[in-house]
Simulated scan of single mutants.
Amino acid sequence: MQIIKGAGEWAQPEASDWVEHLKVPDLSIGTYCIPVGGVDKQSPHTEDEIYVVTTGRARIVTPTGEEQVGPGAVIFVPAGEEHRFVDITENLTLLVVFGPAYGSRAGR
């Protein structure tokens, strides 16, 4: 067992910021913070991803649609799908879970 301290907590970044807290072969967990008015510059990942919004409000946009999200929202994004958080009206904090671990499929 391991308690992952700080996961999903706002980190006061000046720009969008990703911090990885745990990485094992089958999954990784991190926190992604985007300040009010910030820009989400991420590109599609090679792993499946789950976001849990812990604080803030924004809109997530994918090729298949868009949705307003806020605290408690759980979002699944399959590997390879374009996605972006836009219209960030409150500091956005996301607990992020990748399966398998982030970057583990890169270069395949």
Score class of each variant (00 low, 15 high):
residue 86 V to M: 06
residue 83 H to P: 02
residue 86 V to T: 15
residue 103 G to P: 06
residue 55 T to M: 09
residue 106 A to L: 14
residue 65 G to R: 01
residue 73 A to Y: 03
residue 42 Q to F: 05
residue 47 E to M: 10
residue 55 T to N: 02
residue 30 G to S: 07
residue 21 H to P: 01
residue 73 A to F: 10
residue 70 G to H: 12
residue 59 R to G: 03
residue 17 D to M: 15
residue 35 P to N: 03
residue 97 V to E: 00
residue 73 A to E: 01
residue 25 P to Q: 06
residue 87 D to L: 07
residue 23 K to T: 11
residue 18 W to S: 08
residue 17 D to F: 15
residue 30 G to K: 02
residue 4 I to G: 01
residue 32 Y to G: 01
residue 2 Q to K: 14
residue 14 E to Q: 14
residue 40 D to L: 13
residue 104 S to I: 11
residue 16 S to N: 05
residue 97 V to Q: 01
residue 51 Y to T: 02
residue 78 P to L: 03
residue 103 G to M: 11
residue 48 D to R: 13
residue 100 P to H: 11
residue 14 E to V: 12
residue 48 D to Q: 13
residue 64 T to F: 05
residue 2 Q to C: 06
residue 56 G to A: 04
residue 107 G to Q: 08
residue 30 G to C: 13
residue 50 I to N: 00
residue 4 I to R: 12
residue 67 E to Q: 14
residue 94 L to D: 01
residue 26 D to C: 11
residue 108 R to S: 07
residue 35 P to E: 03
residue 52 V to K: 00
residue 81 E to R: 15
residue 47 E to T: 09
residue 104 S to T: 03
residue 46 T to C: 15
residue 43 S to E: 03
residue 18 W to L: 09
residue 9 E to G: 11
residue 86 V to H: 09
residue 3 I to P: 02
residue 1 M to V: 11
residue 56 G to T: 11
residue 75 I to E: 03
residue 22 L to R: 04
residue 95 L to M: 14
residue 62 T to D: 04
residue 72 G to M: 13
residue 103 G to E: 04
residue 28 S to F: 10
residue 23 K to Q: 14
residue 53 V to N: 10
residue 77 V to L: 12
residue 102 Y to T: 00
residue 29 I to H: 02
residue 80 G to N: 07
residue 19 V to R: 12
residue 16 S to H: 00
residue 74 V to I: 14
residue 6 G to E: 12
residue 29 I to A: 05
residue 73 A to L: 07
residue 77 V to P: 01
residue 62 T to S: 15
residue 49 E to I: 04
residue 105 R to W: 04
residue 81 E to C: 04
residue 76 F to C: 04
residue 60 I to G: 10
residue 32 Y to M: 04
residue 9 E to Q: 11
residue 80 G to L: 07
residue 18 W to M: 12
residue 20 E to L: 13
